[in-house]
Design a protein around this nucleic acid. Structure first.
Lengths: 140, 140
DNA sequence: GCAAATTCGTTCGTATACAAACAATTTTAG
DNA sequence: CTAAAATTGTTTGTATACGAACGAATTTGC
């Protein structure tokens, strides 16, 4: 346990941070034309799945805390990609749905979403890809 | 390639983002007493390895771009954990080293660094742990 | 039915993360 | 030797990420 035994480059936290940096870089390059960040794309995809979804629930589905979710929905809303309405049954809630431009942008971007995944996993064999996803699922 | 086929929860980028959130949460809980973030701890550990290191090189060793590195060295320096000096041979450079308090804090924290790694990898078998590290290395 | 607990969304502050543009300095090439 | 290229570090702006504290609204527990 001495200092000399601690190798930063072998710690899983450090490797996860670097892997996510790489994933973000691949995404950013591929999505430059859409002006969408990974979290914004995730939010659009989940709203599409849900049809209509409250802000906090969207945060849970996309792994963003309420403070982060606020910023993302604000920016998507300002760009006119999503629209919110006050929920009459629960007046604390804001329900979000895709606008037509939002749905169109998302439809155009899906293919690049698959391409991002493919590019990140390119160094791995099909078997390794499945293993990586399985192990990541186990530690989250 | 239709919209319905895109499952966010199975995309490696999304899983990496969630895994890193978990890793950061484990680190933050374990390091609450030190007031160190994962990047700050990484910087201290690498400075310790190098003895003395320039700001940009430290950024490369810890996977931080120059703008991010600036913020980290500023905060560590303000806390008196590291000290910088102007390099006489290359006047663009700032060389950083640990102060005595910085070295003492780092020495006290190393054990918790190992504990963080152990806790993150706890759901995996020894064999799976090695596999995960190997696959992450391949995609970074 | 009502007080306590929980949930929803907001705001503030701090800390990565990185693109882009920049000045100062050093290195490289011809 | 010197002009071009590269490196070092800084600054600004945008976007996560999250702790903490908060008011408003809803649900729970007794």
């Amino acid at each position: 346990m001495s200092a000399g035994d601690y190798r930063l480059d072998e710690q899983v936290g450090f490797l996860l941070r670097r892997a996510q940096q790489r994933a973000t870089a691949v995404f950013t390059a591929r999505f430059a034309g859409y002006g969408l960040t990974p979290t914004q794309f995730a939010a659009l995809a989940k709203i599409a799945d849900e049809g209509e979804v409250s802000q906090n629930r969207l945060g849970r589905l996309t792994a963003m805390d309420p403070a982060t979710m606020k910023g993302v929905t604000d920016r998507l809303s300002e760009r006119g990609l999503i629209a919110g309405r006050a929920d009459q049954e629960d007046r604390r809630r804001t329900q979000w749905r895709l606008t037509d431009p939002g749905a169109a942008l998302l439809a155009a971007a899906y293919g690049d979403g698959f391409a991002v995944t493919a590019e990140i996993l390119d160094p791995l064999s099909p078997r390794e890809r499945a293993t990586l996803l399985r192990l990541l699922e186990k530690i989250v």
